[in-house]
Computed example of a mutant assay.
Amino acid sequence: MPRVAGVDIPDKPLRIALRYIYGIGPHHAALICQEAGIEGQTRASTLTEDQLAQIAGIIEANHLVEGALRRQIAQNITRLRDIRCYRGDRHRRGLPVHGQRTKTNARTRKGRRKTVAGKKSVKTMK
């Protein structure tokens, strides 16, 4: 398995394999292939050491990836919490941040359902 930017990339076409690096999606993978002058369909295992070094250099110079990107995102969220803005409060409470509904759905952010005791409906007798 070739290693680029500290990540083992699988033996797949290069434009797909580069997406295994945190912070590189389809668009950036295509741009990196184009800038390096390598066909996107080329298998990652067939790349030479020079080509891998060239790709690693392009990523280092132009893209924020892996640990540095994760650190920056964490700092941004911490800043939002510290200034006590609405988005920071939503992060603190573990609720959706971007305006999604929470009456139904939002289970990914809220976690498993918590059953509340005493919520039985009252039946009326006629």
Rank of each mutant, 00 (worst) to 15 (best):
M125V: 15
G57H: 07
K12Y: 13
R70H: 02
P10Q: 08
A68S: 07
G37I: 07
Q75W: 00
Q34T: 11
K12R: 15
N76A: 10
D8C: 11
I9C: 00
H27S: 05
K126L: 13
H98T: 12
T108N: 05
K120A: 04
G37R: 08
H91F: 14
A5H: 02
A36P: 08
K110N: 10
G118P: 03
H63A: 04
L14D: 04
S121Y: 05
T104H: 14
L52Q: 15
A56P: 09
P96W: 00
R19F: 08
G57F: 12
Q75K: 07
S45W: 03
H28D: 10
C85L: 01
I24A: 08
R92I: 13
V7N: 06
R70T: 03
C85W: 00
I21W: 07
G37F: 06
D8P: 13
P2W: 07
H98E: 12
A5R: 03
A68R: 06
I16N: 03
P2V: 07
G40A: 11
R93D: 04
L14A: 04
L31V: 04
R3A: 00
A68Q: 09
I55Y: 14
K103G: 07
N105V: 09
R79Q: 11
E60F: 13
A30W: 06
K110M: 11
Q41K: 15
R84M: 02
L18H: 04
G67Q: 11
A74L: 12
T46G: 00
R90P: 07
I55Q: 15
K126S: 13
G37E: 06
R109C: 05
Q34C: 06
Q75I: 01
A36L: 02
K119A: 11
G23C: 03
L64K: 12
Q72D: 12
Q72R: 14
R71C: 04
C33L: 01
I83M: 15
G23A: 00
T124W: 14
A56D: 15
Y20T: 05
L64N: 11
D89N: 03
P26H: 11
R107C: 00
G99A: 00
D11M: 06
T115N: 03
R15L: 05
Y86T: 11
R19V: 09
I73S: 04
G23K: 01
